[in-house]
Simulated assay, not measured.
Amino acid sequence: MTDSTGELTAKEIKKRKRRLPPPDPEALPGLVDAHTHLAACGGRTEADVRAILDHAESVGVEQVVTVADDMVDARWAVAAAHWDRRAFAAVGLHPTHAADLDDEARAELEQMVDDPRVVAVGETGLDYYWTTRSDDCADPTTQRDAFAWHIDLAKRSGKALMIHNRDADRDLLDVLAAEGAPETVVMHCFSGDRAIARECVDLGYVLSFSGTVTFNNSGELREAALLTPDEQLLVETDAPFLTPHPYRGQPNQSYCVPYTARALAALRGVDDHELAHTLGANARRIYKFPLR
C-alpha cells in the first residue's frame, strides 16, 4: 500500500518489517533452546530441521527441545529428534487439546516416552485463556483430568514434566500438589508474578523464560527472573512466537535465544558468557540429555 506519492505508508512499512526475521545475534556459545516448535518454524523435513539447527548452532545454540501440541505434532517431534542429534522431543497434549486424550492417545504417548530421544512429557497443564475464546478448546475439567494423567506419566517415565500455564496459576499449582509433582517440573514460558515465582522456586520447580521477559511491559516478570536461583533457570524461544525485544512480532527461531539470554544476564548483573554456560548446563541436566 502506498500513499499518493507512491511511497510506502508507515503501516505498510511496519507490516513488511514484521515479516522479516531478526538479524543474527552475536554468538553466545553453550546455550540450549529449552522449548521450541520446529515444525511451526518451517522444519517439516529433515533438511529443513538441519537448516534451522545449523543456523542456531552458528550463534551458540547447540541443542533444542522441540515440543508437541497434539498427537500429529508428537509423532513429528519424535521423528525430528531422530533426524538430528541436536534435537530432542517433548511429547504430550497441549491443554487446549486435552479432549483428544483417549485410550489410543494414552497408549501411543506411553510408547513415545520410552524413546531415549524424548526428554519430557508435555507441554501439558491448564489454559483458561482459550476456554472463553475458542469453541475448540477443552473445558477446564477435561484439562485438569488430562493434566493429572500427564503428571502420572512423567512420574512413571522419570522424564521432566513440561508445564503450559495461561491464566490458571492457582488451579495449576493446586493440581500439582494434589497429584504429587514428579521429580522435575519445568514451568515453560513462565508468566507469573514474583509471588507465584517464589512459590514455584520454593517447590523446586524450574522456571524457563522466553522473549516475554524482554518486553517493555514485563516488569513483574523480570522480578520473577531475578529471584530465580541459577540452578532453576532455563531460557527458551517458544518459537515461532514471542520474539525478544526489539524484534517483538517478527518471526522467531532458536537462533534468537542469545537475545533473551543476554537480557537475563544484564538483568541479573552477570557475565553473559557465564550465564550462557549455566543455562546450557541446566538444560542438559534437567532434561537428562544423553552423552554425545
Rank of each mutant, 00 (worst) to 15 (best):
Asp169Asn: 13
Glu231Tyr: 00
Leu28Glu: 11
Met71Trp: 09
Asp84Arg: 14
Leu176Tyr: 01
His55Glu: 12
Met112Lys: 07
Glu7Ala: 14
Asp84Tyr: 02
Glu274Asp: 11
Asp174Phe: 08
Leu93Val: 01
Leu53Val: 12
His277Lys: 13
Glu104Cys: 06
Ala224Leu: 02
Leu264Glu: 00
Trp76Ile: 04
Val72Asp: 11
Ser210Phe: 00
Ala79Lys: 15
Pro229Lys: 08
Asp48Pro: 04
Arg284Leu: 12
Ser134Ala: 11
Leu101Arg: 09
Tyr259Lys: 12
Ala261Ile: 07
Thr36Glu: 06
Ser254Ala: 13
Val65Thr: 14
Ser254Gln: 01
Leu20Gly: 04
Phe215Ile: 12
His164Ala: 00
Pro240Asn: 03
Arg198Asn: 08
Arg248Lys: 06
Thr9Lys: 10
His277Cys: 06
Asp70Val: 07
Tyr259Thr: 04
Leu28Ser: 12
Val270Arg: 11
His97Thr: 05
His273Trp: 02
Ser210Lys: 12
His82Met: 14
Gly122Asp: 09
Gln111Arg: 06
Thr237Ser: 08
Ala105Ile: 11
Arg170Gln: 14
His37Leu: 11
Tyr247Pro: 12
Pro95Tyr: 04
His82Lys: 15
Asp152Gly: 15
Phe209Gln: 04
Arg44Ala: 04
Asp171Ser: 12
Leu233Ile: 09
Lys11Gly: 02
Arg170Lys: 13
Leu242Asn: 14
Arg285Asn: 03
Cys189Phe: 01
Leu161Asn: 06
Ser210Arg: 00
Pro116Trp: 09
Ile163His: 10
His82Gln: 14
Ala27Val: 09
Ile151His: 13
Glu62Ser: 15
Phe209Met: 05
Gly43Leu: 04
His97Asp: 05
Lys15Trp: 05
Val121Tyr: 06
Arg85Phe: 05
Arg194Val: 13
Ala99Ile: 03
Asn252Ser: 15
Arg117Cys: 01
Tyr255Leu: 03
Val61Met: 13
Ile286Thr: 13
Asp54Trp: 02
Val72Asn: 14
Gly204Lys: 13
Arg198Ile: 11
Gly211Ser: 05
His97Arg: 15
Pro240Lys: 10
Gly158Ser: 06
Met71Val: 08
Phe147Cys: 01
Ala177Leu: 03
Asp167Cys: 09
Cys41Gly: 09
Pro22Arg: 15
Pro246Gly: 00
Thr124Cys: 13
Leu207Phe: 00
